[in-house]
Design a binder for these strands. Structure first.
Lengths: 332, 332
DNA sequence: CGACTGGCTGCTAACGTTTGCAGCAATAGT
DNA sequence: ACTATTGCTGCAAACGTTAGCAGCCAGTCG
């Protein structure tokens, strides 16, 4: 079906090797014949067989991308930048979605790893040792997660969270409620401790509700809990929970930024649909993705080993919109 | 690095072919030796080389998935079902995102097609002839788009749209405004004509605004246009436009379901974040994806040709929530 | 004028599988 | 007791590519 090197060679009346060289190592072949070969290959519609090439080179020119939930709006921007960066570098992308099911992730990753040169893994929930095993087996870059002795691209929330707390303090809030994410989630732990630190430093009280799944539904539940608990300001584990919370508040006749101030984390594009628009801690999603790909490809080029396991740390900042406002006097 | 058939064979003191058969065609080998081989292969951690297998079989056990925009919440549910169905059937998924850039789609698809056994393509904008060429070159199933002589999985909006119009009529609306999607979008055309038909049949007036990009931003713009145009009820090309419109209405102190009734199409999960929740025409996203995979794999099994190019048509229905309400008396 | 160099090309092995064919026991059939 | 048959195993070719090695011709230098 597909046209092979042999057919091109026959049409050009040269050997297979010459055609191969003409197309993949042009300097080694006479300019004239090279031109002829290129022309004929072109008009015969020759395309090298990936499989054959893989077999001899040992590479697949593909990377695997594993995310916990495509439907979580946090991920698509990351995926998009992974896709475009990979494509720029000549790599295809194999996708897998673990459906927030940590138990399957290891197996999914292993399957992916078998068909790709390396992996980009966003896995908030899986255990550190399990991930370390993966990293020992394949070239892996972890996104939004720091695994010891592996390459990571992580978000440093401290600055954004500090700004958020300062912002709330400036608005007169004296107590902040954290709507926690999944207990085993790495970034939940990060955010939690960053928040705790910021709060003690600024001398205000921190409470916590949850854990909540990173889904809108959970946010609805969180809203009622937070309200009945008398909170005046909440910082949610992520935008989904924050958005769900706002939706529920509105439904109950309240408004974020008045009765309760709400801050999300991720600054996903969805924050614009809410009213008022969601104050959120912006994370540079596109950079997350492209940095991960760059790190991975560098690793691949550097011959698999030696490289001293870097961690890239990306800054966050607070984006103030309408969902935060002065602390209400009556409820303080 | 990786362990090969040859190494397993050596360890078992049998020939390579026997190992190969023991693992992929178990009936043809003595149960005892088979057991031994399986055990040893297992403990050596043998995994067949995809590349070598591909080379001889001509298959890659992967399918390509091309979508116009991962960040559009319409697609993730479809992608999820494609992923899980493909995985169930033993196929990996290669992903590409055209960024709503129709011009690149053909090339992206061709690249994908070269590395996969078949393609699932969601391409609203690209020209019919271009897609037909693709379908002639690779096994392709189109999602949410009907291409002649090719396999398609499409949404039949007529029922859902008819229900939507009836719903609005029942609420006293006498005029409906359609917030059009991209002019060249296939589903926009479908929705437009289905709407026109429903409106004439039910004897109410139809106007149109747009075109709008399927993005929240466009919805904000649409809101102001629709409001100043005096519309009492709009049906948007998709949920994103509808949600953007609602956000803008709220911002301007109005509420969907009172001053203006808003209906979206897609019923994406995001409809729950809006207040009031968005009345929308539900499309069975999961079925779209799995049907596409099933169709594609059937096609692959059936030996590439002969099969009489089916089109699977999925029904839609209206899901009524809070964004639709009685027509306001003062503005009718 | 002979040897050497260097540019170009072809032969061949190798990558790891699958698979048709042949060999070879042991069993069954006559 | 001899052939047919069956059940299992091994050999070798093939898939399409890359790359090391050797060969060849022309040109250059001594």
């Amino acid at each position: 079906m597909a046209v092979t090197l042999a057919e091109v060679a026959a049409a050009c009346r040269v050997s297979i090797s010459t055609v191969s060289r003409a197309l993949s190592d042009p300097d080694k072949v006479n300019p004239q014949t090279r031109a002829r070969i290129e022309r004929i290959a072109q008009q015969l519609g020759y395309a090298p067989s990936r499989a054959a090439r893989s077999l001899v080179s040992g590479r697949t020119d593909a990377i695997g991308l594993l995310v916990p939930d495509i439907a979580n709006p946090f991920f698509p921007p990351i995926m998009k930048s992974v896709l475009s960066r990979a494509r720029d570098k000549g790599y295809a992308v194999l996708l897998a979605d673990s459906d927030e099911h940590a138990a399957d992730e290891s197996e999914l990753a292993r399957d992916l790893g078998r068909q790709a040169d390396g992996l980009v893994i966003a896995s908030p929930r899986t255990g550190e040792t399990e991930l370390a095993e993966l990293a020992a087996q394949f070239p892996v870059v972890f996104v939004n997660r720091e695994v010891a002795k592996a390459e990571n691209v992580v978000i440093d929330e401290t600055e954004g969270i500090r700004e958020a707390v300062e912002h709330l303090v400036a608005l007169g809030h004296r107590q902040i409620c954290y709507l926690a994410g999944p207990r085993r989630s790495w970034s939940n732990q990060q955010r939690r401790t960053a928040l705790a630190r910021a709060c003690t430093e600024l001398g205000i009280e921190l409470t916590e509700l949850g854990p909540f799944e990173p889904q809108i539904q959970a946010g609805l539940r969180a809203a009622d809990l937070a309200h009945s608990g008398g909170a005046t300001a909440v910082i949610a584990y992520d935008d989904l929970i924050a958005l769900g919370m706002m939706a529920r508040l509105t439904e109950r006749g309240m408004q974020a930024g008045r009765e309760i101030s709400v801050i999300g984390i991720d600054d996903s594009p969805m924050s614009a649909v809410a009213h008022p628009m969601l104050t959120s801690i912006h994370v540079p999603a596109a950079e997350l993705g492209s940095a991960a790909v760059d790190l991975l490809l560098a690793r691949l080029r550097s011959g698999e080993s030696s490289a001293p396991a870097r961690t890239v740390r990306l800054e966050t900042r607070l984006v103030i919109r309408g969902s935060t406002g002065p602390a209400p006097v009556d409820r303080r």
